[in-house]
């Protein structure tokens, strides 16, 4: 492993750390006013990685949106290597597996993007270039 992998890992680690240091020097973490139980911000949003779920909850019954869909997603993800018995690594032999994963990734990405940028007061649909952003990291 020396020097091949260790040098690569060291350079990857340095690049990653350098990016973090520069980014953190330029952009401050957000801190809003003190938590206030009586004052609900509008819209109230979950952290960005849960906004796909929050978005689903506006479309379906909580049982479907909060349990069935994400539960199935995680379950299938865990079982993926046991379901996919195809021994080949070639993309051209794995059209179904690759399409399915791409649809899965696109599904959550699109939901998270809509939840993050296209939902305003009352969690109603807005256009960020007209009504502005309602999103904090």
């Amino acid at each position: 492993m020396w020097p091949h992998l260790l040098v690569i890992e060291f350079v990857a680690a340095l690049t990653c750390t350098a990016f973090l240091f520069i980014f953190s020097w330029l952009v401050n973490a957000p801190l809003l006013e003190l938590a206030n139980f009586n004052q609900t911000p509008n819209p109230s949003k979950a952290p960005w990685y849960f906004l796909g779920l929050q978005e689903l909850l506006t479309m379906f019954h909580p049982m479907v949106a909060g349990v069935t869909i994400p539960g199935m997603g995680i379950f299938v993800l865990i079982l993926a290597p046991y379901i996919d018995k195809n021994p080949s690594n070639k993309p051209e032999d794995r059209k179904f597996a690759i399409s399915l994963m791409t649809v899965h990734i696109m599904f959550w990405s699109v939901l998270v993007i809509i939840g993050s940028f296209f939902r305003g007061p009352g969690f109603n649909f807005t256009l960020p270039w007209i009504d502005g952003l309602f999103f904090e990291l």
Partner: peptide, 17 residues
């Protein structure tokens, strides 16, 4: 802060479903 408090309120409400 407000961001933390309400994000976690919304997030844990989802667990309640």
């Amino acid at each position: 802060d407000q961001l933390a408090f309400w994000a976690v309120t919304v997030g844990t409400e989802m667990a309640g479903y």
